[in-house]
Write a protein that binds this DNA or RNA. Structure first.
Lengths: 195, 195, 195, 195
DNA sequence: TATGAATGAGAATTCATTCAT
DNA sequence: GATGAATGAATTCTCATTCAT
């Protein structure tokens, strides 16, 4: 068991508080209106300290986007996996609904990660991560009768998640063309047709 | 018949050159790296002149996004309407392919309008515009057998265009998860299922 | 009788509306926050027109200060002259009270003419003006028993009006050290001692 | 005993040099004609440093006005207190003459602090300051026979200092209605009558 | 006279980044 | 590692003034 020194813990605390401060400020005031000086003030550390842990504002932002994107997906799949379903269709729609509900509750986060909730990017970054792989397994199992080529499963996942993400952004953040709840039935109908 | 004075023509020229300069710089250097002083220098006008026509950088940007978004759609529908097709499916796929090919050729534009190619927003802004309405008519005619509720046609258009837009952005700009040409067959397959 | 042409009347109208607009804006938004473009917009004339009547912002301002300063004094003396008094003291205090009450009602004006309500300056500008001269006559008559040297009457008027003006500014505008109504008794007591 | 670090000393030096530069420029060129860039250039620091110590131009100005106003009064009272006088009247006139002579020598300063030499404001800001309190004691002692109400002493001081200040401004800066030396006898006569 | 588009100098302010302590 | 004072380039935006129409 690795020994983690007090210094190590302290460093981690600093980084965490910077990350948390950045997240809080980015979502509430926007990326544009958040300066590094705001972040360090909120985090309670000195300005120079920021540069010990991050390259610049966009470095933290990238970390946040990746973390939160995968968090959304992982939470939705875990949520889904504790239930039983009669069909893949049912399971998938439950999974997608979990994502939508999460984003509805976290409008500010959705605005922040904007349309960066890209399966392609998350998949690449977390290809060895259990939670993310489970999403793949769900689709693999569900689509096994379709005789899809190697790699096409990834593409289908990508397309569906792109669709969900961009519809959510438009409906939840912009309110265009309607509210998300009005869009859901049609969206689900379409997803059913896709699979 | 309205008289258009020399002054009026000159004003239009100034605004156009500012718009064109902004577009050129935004696409090649990015929005962040383009200062108002760059725009006016390129446009060959004084700094104050910019503020005679636009509120700030984002005011031009919004105009550009809206203009170009609709331009893409209008060009694709016009492109489509001069041809004959055996089925709606064939026609729709041709229309979508036109959009994709346009975006492939204009990667910088795609990056700029980001994922703002939102049917909801464009539709709202151009609801009396002939070109945009024709897209609606195409879908209305093609989907007439489905017995869709009033308003659902708009939702279907929205969903399909969101899908196409975000897939294009991810594949063409980020190259994730694959190139757009590899994605096209699956994407088309899925759209065929949707309708 | 001089013929005043329509053109002449029109010109006067323009100048008046510029003057009025400037006064309104100076008092409500402050001199600093009022640009020439604001004045012309409010006056309903073109920018260039401003320069046909005034040199710059401070040119109008100077005219306003002088006009309004003398207006205050003239109004107070006219107000006073329609009444009968038993003594010079009574008359003078009534005159001063008229000034104070006027300034209390026109706090914004007081702020604008600031401490420019200087007897020295007004006297110089309006030395042939009836209303202003009447103030002099009042003092001359009231102080005739004091055997003052030539010119000393002007000095006494000056000192008393300076005193009243600066006390009003401090009390009415700044509220320091107390409200003007609390200061009045002492101020009047002191003025009584002076004469 | 508080430790004052080298850093602390350095910071103080920077602030002082900015303050001094601002004072020099404000008095010689006027507030309007002094830009922040002029101040920092003169002070020999970077532009951003200015904002580390002051909010804006008017922030330094306010500090200067308050400082200098009290400096004038404190210097005059100290000047007065080292002497012996036979009466309060004599002492007061000496005190006032000290103020006038100071302002005569510092016409630029007088112009800057304008008519902001207000006893009300200075008193409020420095209510615990020894020098300023001594002025109060002088009056309290001198006026003890008058049986004045609590607070009335402050009002008398206020009125006399307002009078002196505004007469000085008008005579020394504007030269209206005459030079200060010609005004002095009458002014002193009036002050004698007041007390 | 009157107009108002165009000008461009110039002012204020911000903020990422460095570096001596 | 941690600090935070100092930097100064960069950017936005204003506005008095001009001048062709």
């Amino acid at each position: 068991m690795k020994h983690i020194s007090k210094v190590e813990i302290n460093k981690r605390k600093k980084e965490d508080s910077l990350y948390a401060a950045a997240y809080e400020l980015f979502t509430t005031q926007g990326i544009h209106n958040t300066a590094i000086s705001d972040i360090v003030k909120k985090a309670g550390v000195a300005k120079g300290t920021f540069y010990l842990y991050f390259k610049d504002k966009y470095d933290v932002l990238d970390k946040i986007i990746l973390d939160k994107s995968s968090e959304i997906l992982v939470e939705a799949i875990e949520h889904t996996n504790i239930k039983e379903f009669d069909s893949f269709e049912e399971k998938l729609l439950y999974f997608i609904d979990s994502i939508i509900e999460y984003l509805k509750e976290n409008k500010l986060l959705l605005k922040l990660i904007y349309k960066n909730l890209s399966w392609g990017v998350v998949r690449k970054a977390y290809k060895d991560y259990k939670g993310i792989n489970e999403i793949y397994y769900m689709f693999e199992d569900g689509l096994k009768d379709y005789d899809l080529k190697e790699g096409d499963i990834e593409k289908v996942i990508f397309i569906i998640l792109e669709l969900v993400g961009s519809v959510c952004y438009s409906c939840i953040v912009l309110g265009e063309p309607t509210e998300i709840d009005e869009m859901k039935p049609i969206l689900f109908e379409i997803i059913k047709k896709i699979i």
